[in-house]
Design a protein around this nucleic acid. Structure first.
Lengths: 142, 142
DNA sequence: CCAATTTTGATTTTGATTTTCAATTTCAAT
DNA sequence: ATTGAAATTGAAAATCAAAATCAAAATTGG
């Protein structure tokens, strides 16, 4: 509930309307496993709400990003994926170029060094993406 | 010459043909300033070669990536950009979400920590991307 | 409940990238 | 140099995710 509530807050704050669709999309998205494309979320939601339009998914995902509840990613296959911003818990990705596996990791020291770099450049960081591409444990056999 | 020569080597190695177009595209691309989109490179090349087709630009950029001479980037505006891989000199990016400015930086410590992370996950890194999004010096006035 | 405003969803459109295909070019073997 | 098989080119058409349209429906403050 906490999360869906946050979207509600954002909508009210901006004078936008709280609709069933937005609530349902936020709910499903925030409770989901990570890295969903608009299309994937659409299919997921259609199980319970066959009348839901794909446009609304796109629109609501954009709202979730604006509200800071989702982050948008492009992993290079031409499809934009979204991932819930889990209560500030940031993480980065190892991406297997062979099997497509996505492994998450977290490293505090790297985060700190990033802040340092930003400061040295008089840059205010809002968000960052760190992605390591290569072969995962299974695919290491060239 | 050195760089265009390398594409030639790659083509021969793969049994592909060395064409005027490929030579010209590689030349112009590798000598260019950074972060070119296919369209931008197209316009650039058309000045001297009005007959060059856009498809060929796309195809050759793909070859350059395969040959390890270009790296492909998506900064979130829906346009794929390519950048010459300058003799192994790696760098990352600060991207201003307001004015679109792209500032390059380099940090050896971060690189090392990335290697560490990869090792801990039994992951072989081929390539990585680190992008910090936010406000540049000029755009810091919210 | 009402009216003003926003949102929805079906559909169309956009725009970057890819594919198709006939004509041309490359290149290894003559 | 010439040949011919195989690859490449450019123009046009196809793709496909994402954005825009717009009439009908839903939301919300009064």
């Amino acid at each position: 509930m906490g999360k869906a509530g946050t979207l509600r807050d954002y909508l009210r704050h901006r004078g936008l309307k709280v609709t069933h669709q937005r609530e349902e999309i936020a709910q499903t998205f925030l409770d989901s496993t990570r890295h969903l494309s608009a299309e994937e979320l659409y299919r997921l939601i259609q199980k319970g709400h066959p009348e839901m339009g794909l446009s609304t998914i796109y629109r609501t995902l954009k709202l979730l990003v604006e509200a800071g509840l989702a982050s948008q990613r492009e992993f290079g296959d031409g499809i934009t994926r979204y991932e819930p911003v889990a209560g500030g818990r940031h993480h980065d990705h190892l991406i297997c170029v062979n099997c497509g596996a996505i492994i998450e990791f977290q490293n505090q020291k790297i985060e700190e060094l990033q802040k340092e770099v930003a400061e040295n450049n008089n840059f205010t960081v809002l968000q960052h993406k760190l992605e390591l591409y290569g072969y995962c444990e299974k695919c290491r056999r060239h």
